[in-house]
Amino acid sequence: MYEFDFSFLNDYMPDLIHGIWLTIGMTVASILPGFVLGTAVAVARLRGRPWVKRIATVYVEAIRNTPLIIQVFWLFFGLAALQVHIGPFAAAVIALVINVGAYTAEIMRAGFQSIPRGQLEAADCLALSPFQSLIQIEVPQAVERVYPALVSQFVLMMLATSIMSQISAEELTGVAYMIQSFTFRGFEVYLVIAVFYLGLASALRFVLMGLAEVSFPRRRRLRTPL
């Protein structure tokens, strides 16, 4: 009969905490740039000149139809071949931003398309420039409408950081692999790691949903759920 042994938890706690911080760091560093990139691409697909639209579409389709790992390998080993040396953490964040940008672009596109025409006409009547109208009227409303989808996408992105150990970024899964190779307790180690990820996913969801409470005062006043 197999006997479970979780004693590695004591011995390797500092490593595990370090891994958790790296996972959180990667996620936090990627969310805002990924959102900005995605929003810009969504605007490009909706308003851009034909060639801009085409480039944006190619980017979105290329990213959405290939696996993240291949993108990461392409970037990390490709940069190394060009003699550009950036660390695994930086490579991981760049890859995540490019990846999540494509998904965010699709979500934000839906958000922009759901804004009633009257809002755009009203912005026009108030003599807002197209850029002002975009930043002050359209982006806030689009974000408010698609916020739950954005949150899910960023949670998925956090979970996807678990492959970054493939390019030697020592995040949580990488630490788990290290521990399992010392202790030969692979099953227990990954069970514990799974629970950590569950906690991280709920925490991220909680924080992002809390952010919505603060950022959308109109919703709070009207008590409309997201």
Binding site: L159, T173, Q180, F187, A194, Y197, L198, A201, S202
Partner: peptide, 19 residues
Amino acid sequence: QGVPLPVIMFVVYFGISIG
């Protein structure tokens, strides 16, 4: 849905081998 797929892969992989 709250656990990354690579971790599920590891859990299954090591879970089978402990038997």
